[in-house]
Design a protein around this nucleic acid. Structure first.
Length: 483
DNA sequence: TGAAATGTTGGGGCG
DNA sequence: ACGCCCCAACATTTC
């Protein structure tokens, strides 16, 4: 049986929680059918990569924002929970839908899941179409001369930019009005999903974020209006607010990378920013594209080392050390500040992410997968492609990765990038009175300095859980096993 | 998008 | 004036 043209079109929202430049929504509008927007909370299909606690917090607020925006153009948002395929099946039957549109997800479990759903829908004569809303280039579009996917970032991005400049970048306008079906399926109540923490409310420190499409747009405008000018130089200093902070918005698809690209070029054409500044920022967006390409071509990226030889690396197991790292109690102030920033704010500055990741994998010799899991649960911008690719990058096992022997010295990194210790003082308050000369290695401070700063090492602030020189030698020794 | 070890150079102290 | 040593300062190599 073929559904009538007046049968509703379901728009299945996933990681595209926006109305602007939303191809699936646009397709539904174009179809002329009544539109039924749906979000399915699927904590079954993703297996071990089901959404983490911090992401749940963001999702709650983002869905609230999405529902509000949809309402303003005349549409509801139907919330359902369960395994995507069977929920969709029920929804289609209940609503008598004639079409289902969605924007692609690229996680391995999602591509498999969505292919099956599409096949089943079409077998029932229901139109099913998917679109690209999340990436500047599809992961399969960027190939080298041999027709393979790139394993090095620079040539990848060069090729991608060439392609992007060759073609017109199409974006879809923000819709003004839409029609909903006369009868609606029942919706879950968002609050009953209990996505927000209650006791203890560990999300207090998340308050400065504004999830949702409007918050994303504000963040983009604020950044491209001024901070992008200093981004190239200042992005490495965690005490400054010089990065875009767009990552969670991008992950949830509250902003389209195409609109980011267009907006940066617009600023460039108006000569409000310099080409080098625009390029630097866009190349960071490019790393996201590169990560998606890697995950697409190497679906085991979240579990297995991209470079096979790392399968034999002698990682250790040490729950006590892992816990100290997670809690920001390693005794290395720059590491601890980062881990506490993560816990308190749901985000960590990129420079510090590299430092803490290097510390986990090289100073503690703990597997990068452990770090990836912790980030997955605590980051508001937790994104399977970015998270997996970046952890492998630091660990040395990834594509175009930092060589394993590039071991960060947490003291030097602190001195270089948080010279005055502002960032450390913000997140490690027990060191707030330490003079900058000793704040990066407080255990080396003379007795009278410690006394004056009211710090007893091992009591107020932990002694270093490993000795840097010893750890460095040990890491290099371990590396010899796989060289 | 490192750090440490090793090598080289050149100025100054000093016999 | 000269050679020698010391050691920053910088460069190169290695991990």
């Amino acid at each position: 049986m073929t559904a009538s043209p007046s049968a509703p079109a379901i728009v299945w929202f996933r990681q595209d929680l926006r109305l602007a430049d939303n191809p699936a929504l646009h397709a539904a509008l174009k179809s002329g059918r009544p539109i039924l927007p749906v979000y399915i909370l699927d904590n079954i299909t993703p297996g071990e990569w089901k959404m983490g606690a911090a992401s749940h917090w963001w999702l709650h607020h983002s869905l609230e924002a999405l529902a509000k925006s949809l309402k303003a153009i005349g549409l509801p948002l139907i919330l359902k929970r369960g395994e995507s395929g069977s929920v969709m099946n029920t929804l289609v039957k209940e609503s008598g839908a004639g079409a289902v549109y969605w924007n692609r997800c690229y996680e391995p479990y999602a591509t498999v899941r969505d292919a099956t759903i599409k096949e089943n829908l079409r077998a029932d004569d229901i139109a099913a179409e998917s679109y690209n809303a999340s990436l500047l280039v599809e992961p399969w579009e960027v190939e080298n001369a041999q027709g393979n996917h790139f394993k090095v970032f620079t040539p990848f991005w060069r090729r991608a930019v060439e392609q992007l400049l060759e073609r017109e970048m199409k974006t879809f306008p923000y819709p003004t009005k839409a029609n909903a079906p006369a009868t609606l399926p029942t919706s879950d109540v968002l609050d009953e999903w209990k996505l927000l923490p209650t006791q203890p409310n560990w999300a207090e420190g998340f308050a400065h974020w504004t999830p949702g499409e409007k918050g994303a747009e504000q963040a983009l405008l604020a950044f491209t209006d001024s901070a992008i000018r200093y981004y190239r130089v200042e992005r490495d200093f965690p005490a400054q607010e010089s990065t875009s902070r767009l990552s969670p918005h991008l992950h949830f698809g509250e902003i389209s990378p195409r609109l980011i690209w267009k907006h940066v070029y617009h600023q460039l054409d108006a000569e409000r920013i310099k080409p080098a500044d625009a390029q630097k920022f866009l190349s960071e967006v490019g790393w996201r594209e590169f990560s998606y390409s890697l995950l697409y071509h190497f679906p085991a990226l979240p579990q297995k080392p991209f470079q096979e030889k790392f399968a034999a690396f002698p990682w250790e197991k040490n729950d006590k050390a892992l816990l100290a790292w997670q809690r920001g109690m390693t005794g290395y102030p720059i590491v601890d500040a980062g881990m506490r920033e993560l816990w308190q704010t749901g985000w960590m500055h990129n420079r510090v992410r590299m430092i803490v990741a290097s510390f986990l994998t090289k100073h503690l010799l703990l597997p990068w997968q452990e770090g990836a899991k912790w980030f997955w649960d605590t980051l508001l911008d937790a994104d399977l492609a970015n998270n997996s690719a970046s952890w492998q990058w630091v660990a040395g096992s990834g594509a175009d990765a930092a060589p394993y022997f590039r071991i960060f010295n947490p003291i030097l990194q602190g001195e270089k990038f948080d010279e005055k210790g502002e960032y450390i003082r913000r997140f490690v308050p027990e060191l707030k009175n330490m003079p900058k000369e000793y704040i990066h290695a407080p255990w080396k401070a003379p007795e009278w300095i410690l006394k004056q700063a009211k710090v007893v090492i091992g009591k107020d602030y932990p002694a270093p859980i490993v000795n840097h020189e010893m750890a460095r030698d040990r890491a290099l020794e371990a590396y010899k096993n796989i060289k």
